[in-house]
């Protein structure tokens, strides 16, 4: 047993640079993009299964969410006037580049679909753009998880396998919840089921993020992020429970949908905050790396000893 070595840092300064992304811009961009993505899928399927009210609500949610998401993304740039430089190249090594190429056509298609609903015209065009948006809706819900995970931020990076699942569930809960709240009861069945499934996935995957990664899971349970995520859990769980009543009462549907949307918003803020906290404290950068370095040194010396014995 080796003694616990005292943690050292350079005057307690962070080693990596915490993200310069602003709050609430970026957490809201994550939430709105997710809600829009799942709503676009809901809208296209509602259109195809002749649920006009659900289709209208879902497509308006998708269009509004996508536009607001783009607005928050542009507002967060250091040089907003150069937003179009995002579409200068397509790089698969950059989730933000891939994401821009998902977000740009998605927001165009959802805006066109929502516009057609509002104008009450162009039904054929509406079906076409709605279907296109639905195809991009899936990736819309998850690419933002790669955006966070593909950084040196310890609590985001280590959770890189679970975060896309969290964001997928959170997006379904939000999109399903909002459409549940705004759609007449007789057409909202699929939205309720999507909301309930999404909430269950969000809670389960988030539990793994909060507990599965040792030291770097800690920021998800402590401080402001811990409080946000605890509240998010309560909202999402209550909202999911209320979906059982949401088929009978419009009030229950509204409350359930609102709680699920709030839960999703708080999850995004909580995940964002936990990452910021893990970036600002050098402990979360140094200790896992130190442990990894020790382990590989030990393995190397064992291998060296083994080869000496063997020769």
């Amino acid at each position: 047993m080796v003694d616990e070595v005292e943690f050292t840092s350079y005057y307690g300064r962070p080693i990596i640079k915490p993200p310069v992304w602003k709050t609430p811009d970026v957490p809201l961009y994550l939430f709105l993009g997710g809600a829009a993505g799942s709503s676009a899928v809901l809208g296209a399927l509602a259109e195809g299964t002749r649920r006009p009210a659900l289709a209208r609500v879902a497509h308006l949610t998708a269009g509004g969410g996508a536009l607001a998401s783009v607005a928050f993304l542009i507002h967060d740039l250091g040089r907003p006037s150069r937003f179009l430089n995002m579409l200068r190249v397509l790089k698969t090594t950059s989730p933000l580049s891939v994401g821009s190429w998902i977000l740009a056509p998605f927001s165009a298609l959802t805006t066109a679909t929502a516009g057609a609903h509002l104008l009450g015209r162009f039904p054929l065009l509406r079906r076409f753009t709605g279907a296109g948006a639905a195809v991009l809706g899936g990736p819309m819900t998850t690419y933002t998880a790669a955006l966070l995970a593909d950084t040196a931020v310890p609590s985001w990076h280590e959770a890189h396998r679970e975060l896309p699942v969290v964001f997928a569930g959170s997006a379904m809960a939000a999109g399903g919840g909002i459409t549940t709240a705004l759609t007449p009861l007789d057409e909202a069945g699929p939205a309720r089921r999507v909301a309930a499934m999404g909430a269950a996935i969000e809670l389960a995957a988030m539990h793994r993020v909060e507990h599965g990664h040792g030291l770097v899971s800690e920021p998800y349970r402590t401080g402001r992020a811990g409080k946000l995520l605890k509240t998010a859990r309560a909202c999402t769980a209550t909202g999911a429970g209320l979906t059982l009543l949401a088929g009978r009462s419009r009030t229950a549907a509204a409350v359930s949908g609102a709680l699920l949307a709030v839960g999703s918003v708080l999850t995004r803020f909580g995940v964002f905050d936990a990452g910021m906290a893990s970036a600002k404290d050098p402990r979360y950068t140094v200790e896992p790396q130190r442990a990894r370095a020790r382990a590989s040194e030990a393995a190397a010396s064992r291998a060296a000893a083994g080869s000496r014995r063997g020769s």
Partner: peptide, 29 residues
């Protein structure tokens, strides 16, 4: 940092998870 690793080393795993998550959303909805 004592043992820095380029974050994009794990990008293939991230894209796989992103793809699986997106497929899950489409399938479940």
């Amino acid at each position: 940092p004592p043992d820095p690793v380029v974050t994009t080393r794990d990008l293939p795993a991230m894209w796989r998870s992103v793809g699986a998550g997106a497929a899950m959303v489409l399938g479940l909805i």
